[in-house]
Design a protein around this nucleic acid. Structure first.
Length: 604
RNA sequence: GCGGGAAUAACUCAGUGGUAGAGUGUCAGCUUCCCAAGCUGAAGGUCGCGGGUUCGAAUCCCGUUUCCCGCUCCA
């Protein structure tokens, strides 16, 4: 993977072209001109995705005793999206600068402003504390520094007129309320005619009115469209897990800590779908919500919460783990998953979000990134979300989502009244430090101590299946210069998929197709293998060409049936075949009866 | 949504106003053929779509869709 943008773009183009030519990925609705942000998977892409989906499902649910599965609908009760916050926060208003055409999210406008050199240098003149009017310095700035830093700002283009409004209002006793409003004055040339102009953070020019961008797909349930039956295609699969949390808990004999996994389609009306399938409007997610005891519960039961430290043993979950160790544990588990399908640490990266970047519901978030040709981008996010989601759904639905904890009850029984009082005081103090009310802390403690019940906290490893498929494809892509038998040098493409994810596991070839005994034997081998793995039978063209064709779609193994298989060179070679390895090109002679036993462990 | 580039066979591209081409790939045949071999033959194109200019448009103009690159997004 090259860091040179042109080379990586060229590489992406080769991958896109290969994917189409060999049936991995097509543009959706192509014969109708296509539709922006939607992609289809062809025969090989469907197999690749299925392999990845199955591997995730098996690793995350079947092979674990503490995770169960769920398959919920795409369209759910619309109130779910009000509770989750998506109805409000998924409609980001945006403005464009009329001069430099840059796009700015309205809710981030002021914080982006704060980072701009022109804003900072102006702020120094304005004296933010007093907002005193300093006409002389402002005029000087407009004709000097301003010309370079913010050429399209009204104050720079027409300083006298622009400042006259401010002077007029201040004289009339209407001072700007704050620094923000002050900047609106400086950006507005004709206040009376058109009202305040919002300045572009980049050039000072005029921003358009904020336009809402609703990122959720809307529809209606029932045959008549009205405001009463609006519904949404889910923008993430996770909410269904929270909403069905109590049902799963009550019907599956699970105990906290446990997880619920789900794989499914999600939909987002992205502003700009980009980078091939990386950001699509319809995509598939693989999400786990892993529910854990709040740290306070761990403390009541085990006395203290195990602390994370560099080099901590994360291999086996321990009962006294709090959210932090569970969070680290899942980062470790997910890394191991990626390694098991060929994405090693050399192509992965991690991004630990800083405290102020975190979404309001999260206590910690790690992004697992992959080095795509077009940049290092997120493959999976692992968030510690506290009890935010369950709290929201409990509040909006009016149904209790709390769980009863037998061990907690036993632990609480042993406490003296004095110890209970100390515990409550301690928790109140801690919550207060995190800007949560003492009152809420008291209610929370009361539930723990009298009812032994609580809302579990959650760790959410949330991965994109299409992104993973794209990562696997770009990682597997390789080219080799190779001379053919005539010495002509050609570039050959090889997809070096890990055998576990490869769409086709084995190619089966009779050396020649005009010899019935070879064909019959080859079809026999094909029939034997295809019940256990995806195989491809090919008898057309020279054997080298058939190998090359399979290399190009990443088939890790080839089996060739020749005259020796039929016993022509003696009985010791009878019923043996050539097994060819894609990456090394090496060949070995294997008995047909031993073929399955040899291949199965390699591909599953 | 805004700006820049692109769109011709399955893929990569040539074709600047006068009969739509090449290479690769695909398919069929011959071949005791183990790394895209050779030979013979075949299929495959509303030149993204819609208008306009013109006797005549793949080619010039306008619109539109999609893809790529930036602004923005984050599974």
């Amino acid at each position: 993977m090259s860091s040179d943008p042109k080379a990586s773009q060229a590489q992406m183009e080769k991958i896109v072209s290969l994917c189409k030519r060999r049936g991995f990925i097509y543009q959706s609705s192509e014969i109708y001109g296509g539709i922006n942000g939607f992609w289809d998977y062809g025969p090989l892409g469907a197999e690749l995705k299925r392999n990845l989906r199955t591997l995730w499902w098996n690793t995350m649910t079947r092979e674990r005793e503490d995770v169960v599965g769920l398959d919920a609908t795409i369209i759910m009760h619309p109130d779910i999206w009000k509770a989750s916050g998506h109805v409000d926060t998924f409609a980001d208003p945006m403005s464009t600068c009329k001069s430099c055409k840059k796009l700015v999210r309205s809710d981030q406008w002021w914080s982006i402003m704060g980072e701009q050199p022109w804003v900072q240098s102006l702020a120094a003149i304005v004296e933010p504390g007093t907002l005193a009017l300093n006409t002389g310095d402002l005029l000087k700035w407009a004709k000097g520094k301003g010309k370079q830093l913010a050429p399209n700002l009204a104050l720079v283009r027409n300083p006298e007129v622009t400042l006259s409004w401010l002077v007029q209002d201040i004289e009339a006793g209407k001072r700007p309320a704050d620094a923000r409003e002050y900047f609106l004055y400086l950006a507005t040339e004709q206040k009376a005619a058109a009202g305040f102009v919002t300045p572009c953070p980049h050039c000072g020019g005029e921003m358009t009115e904020p336009r809402p961008f609703n990122l959720m797909f809307r529809s209606h349930y029932g045959p008549i469209e009205s405001d009463d039956n609006v519904c949404y295609l889910r923008p993430e699969t996770a909410q269904a897990i929270f909403v069905q949390f109590k049902n799963v808990f009550d019907s599956s004999r699970v105990k906290v800590p446990f997880g619920i996994g789900q794989i499914g389609k999600a939909f987002r009306n992205e502003i700009t779908p980009r980078n091939y399938t990386f950001r699509s409007r319809e995509f598939e997610q693989m999400e786990l919500e892993f529910f854990i005891r709040p740290d306070e519960v761990i403390r009541l039961i085990y006395g203290e919460v195990a602390q994370w430290h560099e080099g901590a043993d994360l291999s086996e979950p321990q009962p006294n783990w709090g959210w932090e160790l569970w969070h680290r544990y899942w980062v470790d588990q997910r890394t191991k998953f990626y390694e098991s399908i060929g994405l090693g640490r050399d192509v992965l990266d991690y991004y630990w979000q800083s405290k102020d970047e975190l979404a309001h519901y999260a206590t910690a978030t790690v992004d697992i990134l992959f080095k795509f040709p077009f940049g290092t981008e997120e493959l999976e996010g692992i968030a510690a979300r506290g009890d935010f989601d369950l709290t929201q759904h409990q509040k909006h639905s009016g149904k209790s989502l709390e769980v009863f904890d037998e061990e907690l009850r036993e632990a609480v029984k042993k406490l003296t009244d004095e110890q209970k009082k100390d515990f409550i005081a301690e928790v109140q103090e801690e919550w207060n430090d995190c800007n949560k009310s003492r009152e809420d802390a008291a209610i929370f403690c009361d539930k723990l101590l009298t009812k032994a019940s609580y809302l579990p906290h959650v760790i959410e490893p949330s991965a994109g299946l299409d992104r993973l498929a794209l990562g696997i494809l770009t990682h597997a892509f390789s080219e080799e210069e190779k001379a053919d038998v005539n010495g002509k040098v050609e570039t050959r493409t090889i997809l070096r998929f890990h055998p576990r994810v490869a769409p086709i596991k084995v190619g089966v070839f009779p050396l020649l197709k005009n010899k019935p005994e070879l064909v019959a034997k080859a079809r026999e081998v094909y029939a034997l293998l295809k019940k256990h793995m995806n195989c491809f039978y090919d008898e057309s063209a020279a054997i080298g060409r058939r190998y090359a064709r399979q290399d190009e779609v990443g088939t890790p193994f080839g089996v060739t049936i020749d005259f020796e298989t039929c016993g022509e060179k003696g009985p010791e070679l009878q019923d043996t075949v050539t097994l060819r390895h894609r990456d090394s090109g090496e060949q070995e002679r294997v008995k047909i009866s031993e073929l399955l036993g040899k291949l199965l462990p390699l591909v599953s």
